[in-house]
Design a protein around this nucleic acid. Structure first.
Lengths: 241, 241
DNA sequence: AATTGTTTTAAACAGGTGTTTGAAACACGC
DNA sequence: GCGTGTTTCAAACACCTGTTTAAAACAATT
């Protein structure tokens, strides 16, 4: 069994345990037990617990340890569709169930409870994702909206997605099991979060319209009714032309 | 120095340390150091670490250990105003800075990372707050909207509030200090979250209108323009009368 | 002053923790 | 087969942790 395999197993186990418990409450013994390696292996391959943690957080970043992956959009996607894709991809990563689910959970833990070890890593990651989201919002928001307010809209979008995942056990205390299973899927949450935000921006009808009406509009199958400021923006564009 | 005072100092210190670090990473020695009491005092007054934790979580609940406090609203408040008050009070508790700030942070930690010790407590608390929020939403949402979708709106509201607080250190990595200080106050976040949600529901103009226009409308100083489904609901009420 | 009950204390205990160490086992090249 | 380097291992170490203990200090009552 190659040493790369041992090192990888340690990293994977560490990622899972750090994601579940946090840096301090996670133990080297538990990690080694889960990886089925000797206790000393962590120090042999990584040096100490802190370096192991930093390496796990680096591995957790989308695009791996060298950079940030950014969603690409279908050719000719409207800004509304881009926003929907962004939200859907974020939710997919948050809710993924296969063996690398710990990656997003570890990043989420570093967002909600940062350690001092990964500040640069997290700043780089968060800024890149944030820049992408705000560039999508810039396509739909009136240019005269101040930047801080655009940022608050961006945080509201991310906050909803993260919260539905991070608080899922408490949400399970309020809702019955079938409601959470059926309504808190990636698809329904994508519809909900993007529908809510687009309605708030006047780019979709208010919540409370028929569900399939929303879905059709958001999927670009039928133009949503013009809301007031989009109409005003289009009229401004006509004047500028 | 009375024993009540010693017991209270231990509880307060424990609340702070548990809120900062979580149950497992918090230590009895650190708690006793902060409370300036002997190490054995915890076992003398509370029995063990777990019972101390449960007691701290009980103390953290608004309304104290016996019940859940519920916001009261000004006489004749519209549903929109009630929603705004609910959001504001939630944000005030999340962002409070005085010595009992640990209470909401401990509850927030139990929401985002539940322990098995407080499941009944948290279920009771969360359900009570949730019931209040959904009863406000019931006043503004069309009666034909399915309950699961109302619940999702409620979680979106709470999620934004909790996220702005829980992720404040990471948000600080993206925004410059003055932007976060000036725009992420209880007042501005109340305007933002309630404005976004009410706009999404068609009960306020879309985001992107002039700021003071929003604030005036939301403070009840001037009627917001009727949105489509509120008008429909009022017409339905007329028919039913 | 004596007795009783409560509170506080220092010290110890058993178990857990991250790290280190020297040796054994293994792999590879000559 | 030998020498060298890599990997794995059991054991130990120093320190941390929650809990317990017996005694001292304190407070209240008679």
């Amino acid at each position: 069994m190659s040493s790369d395999d041992t090192r990888g197993r340690i990293l994977n186990a560490a990622g899972e345990v750090f994601a579940e418990r946090g840096f301090r409450a996670a133990t080297i013994r538990d990690i080694c037990h889960r990886a089925e390696v000797n206790l000393a292996s962590v120090n042999y391959y990584f040096g100490d617990k802190e370096r192991l943690y930093v390496e796990a957080v680096r591995m957790a970043h989308p695009g791996g340890p060298d950079g940030v992956s950014v969603e690409s959009f279908p050719e000719g996607a409207t800004p509304e569709q881009k926003l929907r894709v962004f939200i859907r991809e974020l939710l997919k990563r948050l809710f993924r169930a296969e063996s690398h689910a710990w990656k997003m959970r570890l990043l989420q833990r570093e967002i909600l409870e940062p350690t001092p070890f990964c500040t640069d890593l997290m700043r780089t990651y968060f800024r890149a994702k944030f820049a992408q989201l705000t560039s999508i919002l810039d396509e739909v928001l009136p240019p005269e909206m101040p930047e801080p307010r655009r940022h608050m809209i961006a945080f509201s979008i991310v906050g909803q997605c993260v919260y539905f995942r991070a608080a899922s056990r408490v949400i399970g205390m309020v809702l019955d099991e079938s409601e959470q299973r059926d309504y808190h899927t990636v698809d329904t949450l994508t519809d909900h979060v993007s529908g809510l935000v687009l309605a708030a921006l006047g780019l979709a009808p208010p919540l409370g319209q028929a569900t399939d009406d929303d879905s059709q509009a958001l999927r670009g199958e039928r133009e949503p009714k013009l809301a007031f400021h989009k109409k005003a923006r289009d009229e401004l564009k006509t004047v500028q032309e």
